[in-house]
Amino acid sequence: MKPSNRTFIISGGASGLALAAARNLHSAGAYVSLLDLNTENGATIVKELGDRAKFFEVDVSDSESIAKAVQGTVEWVKQTGKEIGGVIAGAGVGLPGLMIDKNNEPIPISSIDFVLNINLRGTLDLIRQALPYMTTNKPDGLDGERGVLIMVASSAAFDGQMGQVAYAASKGAVASLTLPLARDLSKHGIRAVTVAPALFESNMTKQMGKKVKQSLENAMEFPKRAGQPDEFARIVREAVENPMLNGTVLRLDGAMRMPARL
């Protein structure tokens, strides 16, 4: 599916890897609907990208917040005539914490809920609310494709470290739901693809200490460095354009397998 003259709903789209994907698709002629909590960044990005970009303040753990953004995007589509061709569910958080701490206290359930509600529930909620406006698209090309859903997991879905139980659970669930989601939507001509990056330069990694980041880079095989946002964006673009990518999880990790502890 060609990105040009189609609208993509991108959560977490005002920063980090999701923003890199938005810029890449926009450069190919796409319209981008950016969903994020950071209104300042959102306004700056829309000013940069121009008329083919729209920003909506959204908390993806809140269904009503998502609904307002989806409806706002639908109204925008009515004005532009550029149908919703895809969703990129890029909003995510990491909140490390051992299941039981040194004082024999279990991790607060609020911490677990926070991670799951954004990384997993928020992903599914955005997708389910956008789908009715994709299934009615005019079938495109030889295969009759109507759209694509791109989700973001993590290498932690497969080899999470100590303190990553909630995060790994959320990302592992996203990886696991990819195939059944593709099967659910096959009759509609809508694909589902998940990208699972390892260590990438992002807002999350900016919060890491130098020693922690170096330890993670040491676990990379080749190249021995954090991935760049553009490298993530390129695989998202390929997932949009390549119709044979469906129901699969693409590891983007430089052969990294994370150790149990740093």
Rank of each mutant, 00 (worst) to 15 (best):
A255M: 13
T178S: 00
G247H: 08
A182E: 05
R234H: 05
P139N: 09
A198L: 04
L142F: 03
P259V: 12
I190R: 08
I235L: 10
P223G: 03
K138C: 02
R121C: 01
A53W: 03
S111P: 00
T194L: 06
F232K: 08
G92V: 09
D159S: 11
I235P: 08
P108T: 03
T248S: 12
G160Q: 09
F56K: 05
M208N: 05
S61A: 15
T73C: 15
R23A: 04
M204Y: 02
D62L: 10
M220R: 03
A43Y: 05
D230P: 00
R191L: 05
K54C: 06
M220V: 01
R251M: 12
R234D: 12
Q214K: 11
A198C: 06
F222P: 00
R183V: 09
S170V: 10
N137A: 09
F8Q: 14
A69K: 14
K54P: 01
M99R: 00
K187A: 07
G97M: 09
G94W: 06
E105G: 01
D59F: 06
G81S: 12
L142T: 14
N5L: 07
L126A: 03
L25F: 10
I9A: 14
L126F: 03
D253H: 09
A182I: 06
A182G: 03
A156E: 06
Q71N: 15
D62F: 08
D159H: 14
T39P: 00
G247N: 07
N119I: 01
K210D: 04
N218V: 01
N41V: 02
S155R: 07
K138H: 06
S15N: 05
G86Q: 10
N203V: 02
R261H: 03
G12F: 01
A18E: 13
D143P: 00
R52G: 03
S11K: 07
K138P: 00
L199S: 07
S11M: 04
D62K: 15
D253C: 14
N104M: 11
K102C: 00
A14C: 15
V93P: 08
W76R: 15
P96A: 05
L181S: 09
A43S: 15
D125E: 15
